[in-house]
Amino acid sequence: MNRLVTLLIRGWSWFSVLLFCSALASLLWFLLRHGVPTLGLELFFGDAPVGKAILGQVRVWDALWPACVGTLLLVLLAALMALPLGIAAGIYLACFAAPRFRQIMSLSVELLAGTPSIIMGLFGFALILFLRKTFFPAANTSLLLAAGCLALLILPYLIFTTRAALDSLPAGLKMIGPGLGLSHLETVFHILLPAAGRGIIGGVILALGRAAEDTAVIMLTGVIANAGLPHGLLGKFEALPFRIYFLAAEYQSQAQLDSAYGTALVLLCLTGLLYCSAFLLHKTLEWRWNRQ
């Protein structure tokens, strides 16, 4: 009986790992096999001349370039809104908030972190409906709105990583300031924040990755399939993840399908790159503390 249980557990554990690995391997293999042959300038710019396309003088059809620009702008705008807010809130929670306050705020931010991204999109959509009814009858979904909703999505991550980076500093380091008679403010800004800097940057990079890959939010807030380069903050736009979704559902030709494979590979590389750099930052950080 005991032997059987032992055997079953061990067998199940090996089975799980093998199943998981083969699923992951087939996913990556499939993507690489179909995606790699499509890589090339044509994937990004189609028939358009590269130089002119980059400068925006020529409209690029059936290619990645507008979606790349759209995603880049989207992530930058979202970061611009969420970074100051998230890092400031994280610093406040870690270093200044009274315990009770900290507890309540953390719970509230935790709830925000657990909210599905489609709800953020729906919120943005509701905002437009509201504006149409009240102040701006012409309000419509746009790059700015999408970036704002994405900012809401990544805000809790930024707050938590900032807070965690500060909280997890060694106790000895936290005592340097008070021991030397520095004010709390000096301690926070001259000792704790520089020391936590890498951890915070790691969190920022992860948040950027989240913003770049999310599809549900932008679907409801202004992304469309053939917008071309974004026309200003209040215009519609294209984005990499949405392009993948759209082509998967509505591809018309083999060429479009190939382009979809390429897009998926490009997005995977982009988020993979962001993820790896955040991971490496984290590792060097751990190493630095452990060496002390």
């Binding site: 100051p84 807010l85 998230g86 400031a88 809130a89 610093i91 406040y92 929670l93 200044f96 908030a97 309540i104 705020m105 509230s108 931010v109 709830l111 925000l112 909210t115 709800i119 953020m120 729906l122 919120f123 509701a126 905002l127 509201f130 809401l152 805000l155 809790p156 707050i159």
Partner: peptide
């Protein structure tokens, strides 16, 4: 800093309110 934290904490209520 405090307003940043407060604002972040209030977003969840804004979401609920709109819905």
């Amino acid at each position: 800093l405090r307003s940043a934290a407060l604002f972040s904490a209030l977003i969840i209520f804004a979401l609920f309110g709109f819905l």
